[in-house]
Computed example of a mutant assay.
Amino acid sequence: MPANFLPPAPAQVLHPDGQVRFGKYAGAPSIIDWTSLAAAHRRGKLWQTLHHKHWHYVALATEEIFCGIAIVDVGWINTAFAYVFDRLAGKLIASYSQDGLPGLTATLNAHPAERASSAFRFLGKRIRFQHLPASGGYELQLQCGSFSINAMLDAKPAAASLLAVGEVLGGTVHATVKSAGMPLSGEVRVGSRSFNLQKGVGSYDHSNGFLARETGWRWASAHALDIGFNLQAGYFSSHENALWLDGQLISLGAAQFDFDPGQAMADWHIYTDDGLLDLHFHPEGFRAENKNLVIASSRYLQPIGVFSGWVRASLDAPKRQIEKLVGVTEDHFSKW
């Protein structure tokens, strides 16, 4: 097996003695449970409560639209957002963002794949993402007034997910599961308009760990059924950098993000230092949100657009050209 191909994921992120199974793996664990975390990385109950961050993000992409949906629990508060970006018009046509009440409005269980279930409910608005045991796929339902989503993500033909488990500067440990691209079905409705998700591609991100009070990152993600990638630079180093290529999951090195933070619609150049990925990203539009809650703040910019360039499985493998693969980049800082 080539050195950058990944071993199968363990069922648990902890060894029986509470030590962490650090590394990158192909597949998802049955559960991400930090309850028996050993003393080397364990902190006091109050510290862990305040620093525990848990989120579920789902992306839906077609030739017409891109949707981003997230449920986030940061311990002392929770929040959710969802949007629809019309790729043909180059603008957001639906957007929902709501802070919730701790312990009441958001629920995220510790299962990142099989038995996964996340939900957000607030004043009649609701979002739910769940694993469907009968089909092995996932269902996403959203009802926010005249904005609704009823989507199915088919996991059967998808490549293995990525599991990354690592240390974080200023925090302790973190684990994330990033799915490969999955075929979509269903529809998105915005007012009187309906968008068919057939022939689209869906993916998700389930993350769970103890992060620093101040956390920042740059991120890029895009998926087709035969190719996809996840790249991050910031709080989690290169732990979650990976390439999906023709059913294989390949580890990538550190990612470099060359962009102008003050120009949301300017192109990005993104590449990895191992020579396996070199891409240019052209934004079609963006979603931005800045929050200041006195004791916390967030600065969020997520351009939506297309990636072009090349990837390869190893240095001696031929370069695979990528042309206009739809996805997102992100520049994010949180004080939470």
Score class of each variant (00 low, 15 high):
M1C: 07
A3I: 10
P7N: 00
P10Q: 11
Q12E: 15
D17H: 05
G18A: 07
Y25H: 10
A26D: 05
A28S: 15
I31Y: 05
D33I: 00
T35A: 14
S36A: 14
L37V: 12
H41Q: 13
Q48W: 02
W55M: 10
I69T: 11
V84L: 14
D86T: 05
A89D: 14
A106P: 10
T107D: 11
L108P: 04
P112K: 02
A113G: 08
R115L: 13
R115F: 12
S117I: 02
R126L: 04
I127H: 01
Q143G: 08
S148G: 04
M152V: 12
D154W: 00
A155K: 11
K156L: 11
P157G: 09
P157L: 08
E167C: 09
A175F: 10
A180R: 06
G181D: 07
G202W: 04
D205V: 09
D205E: 09
E214Y: 12
E214H: 13
W219E: 03
H223S: 13
H223E: 13
A233F: 01
G234C: 12
A242N: 02
D246F: 06
L249E: 05
L252G: 00
G253F: 03
Q256M: 10
F257C: 03
F257A: 03
F259I: 03
D260F: 04
P261N: 05
H269T: 09
D273A: 12
L277T: 05
H280G: 07
P283G: 08
F286R: 06
F286K: 08
R287P: 12
N292A: 14
S298W: 08
Y300C: 11
G305R: 08
V311L: 06
R312A: 04
R312P: 03
A313G: 13
A317H: 13
I322N: 00
V328H: 06
T329A: 08
D331P: 01
F333K: 07
